[in-house]
Structures are given as C-alpha cells and as structure tokens.
Amino acid sequence: MTDQPTTRQTLAPEPNGKTPHDPGPPESPADAKANRTRRNRRYIIKTLSTSPTFISGAVIVLFWVFVGVAWQLVVPHDPQAVDPFHSFEPPSSTHLLGTDNLGRDVLSRVLAGAQTVLLIAPAATVLAVIFGALLGLVAGYYGGIVDIFVMRAVDVLMAIPTLIVAVLVLGILGSSLLNVIILIAVFFVPQIARTVRGSVGDEVQKGYVEAARMRGERGFYSMVIEVLPNVTSPILVEATIRLGYAVFTAATLSFLGLGLQPPSPDWGRTISEQRAYIEISPWALLAPAIALATFIVGVNLAADGLRKAFK
C-alpha cells in the first residue's frame, strides 16, 4: 500500500479514457463520479486570474500587442531615419538604446519591429488553426478510412524538413508577407490537426453526438454545433503554443533573409543585419534579440497558464 489513496480522489478525474474506435467492451459500469468535474467558465476565469504564470505572460503579450499596433505613437524617433554622423552610438538620453550602424535609433526600430511579428505570427496561427481544426474534426468525426487518409497525409506533412522547404519555396515564389504567412500556417496544420483529432475522437464516443446522429443530423451540423464547442479548450491551448512557435519561425525566416526585405525593422532581420557589428554596437543586436525572447516567453507563459486552467 502506498501512502496516498491510489484511487478515487473525491474530485474525480475525467471519465473513461476509451481509445477512439475501440468497439468494446461495450458494457462499462456507472461512471457516477464524473459529474463532479467542473469545467465551467467561472472556474476557468478564476484559475486564470489567480495564476501568476498566465498573468505575467498575458501582460508581456499585451504589451507587445499594444506596441505593435501603436508603435507610431510611442517611438521616440523615426525608425528608418538614417543619421551617418551618429552611428554606433551607445545608449544615451537621446537614444535610450543607442544607434545602429546607420545611426538609426535602436529603441524605435525594436518597437516598430514588433509589427511584422505581430502580423505574421497570429495570421499564420489563425490560418493553421482553421485548417488544422477542420481536418482534425473531419478525421475524428468520420473515423475509418477518412481518418486514416487524413492522418497519413498529416504525417507526411510533418515529416517534411520545414526550413529546407521554406528556403526552396520562398526562393522560388519570392518572399512576401502573404507567402510567409501561408508557409508557416502549412507547417503548423499537422500538429493542430492531430490535437483536435484526438479530442474529437473522445467526444464522438459520447452520448450527445450519438444522439445527434440518431435524430438524423448532418455530419457538418454535428461537427460544428455539437462537437466543436466541446473541443475549443484544446484548440485554444494548442493555438497559443503554436503562436509562440510562429513568432520564432517568422523570426528565423527573416534572419535567414527569407522574410521581409530591408529596411524593415523586423526583429529577425535586424538581428541578422547587426550580427556583423556585434563588437562595436552589441546593443543594436541585443535589443531585438531580447524583445523577441520576451515575446516568445510571454506567449509560452500564457499558453502554460491556459493549459493548466483547461485541465
């Protein structure tokens, strides 16, 4: 006997974790305790609002969102204004974070640089979530051959080495904001499809979905009206995790010169540009790097908080 009661904590965990498409054993006894699981909105809000992880993450993300939207109002200088006489200046009261090789204000460029990441990452994530969720819903709801087909396709997509393909595709098609967004979205679809497929598989076993089928609802109705509202939590959690990756991927692509073209103050691009001057003006490299890091950490903290709240 262990020290802890091994079973049956009073607030019971999730009911049966049957694997999807497992036909039997069909007769399982009463899972009477399940009704204690309270996953109502109030509980989630309460957990989130008392979670230091989520709050600090959310504060960081909101800060960058605000900057990305309103950078014109907060930048001290024009981020593109070149000033050859004041290049490589260390931080001072006029240039709080110094200037770069062309004498541009580093702080202003970092603030302005938030914009592209904030455009690319969420747009790519939203796209990926829409298509990934759709695939996951269809695969999980219909099961059988549809499921096998979709999930095989997803596996293939997952096996593709992302960066190499990105270099090829963007090299051929040319790099534009839209292309970058679509590319990142395509990379993220498989993971989201898998997560959603898993949750949908659990839901489809439940009586309410079977009742919908028995009263003759169409597949699309059942998926969207019955199943989808019950898998929003995992989708939301997955989306926030992907958002963090999307920021990173976007930065990587522009670091490799596959993102936006100069003179965009984009963080990845700037880091790559300023690498050459690391000995002369480390601030010009560090500032966007730290900005990028804080944003990714912020997104991940928020994602972590969300995941715990939805558990």
Partner: peptide, 9 residues
Amino acid sequence: FQSPDSTLN
C-alpha cells in the same frame, strides 16, 4: 444512454 454526464452536450 448510460452515462448521464456525456448524454447531453
């Protein structure tokens, strides 16, 4: 269905 907890959406 058997389980009252999953029988309703």
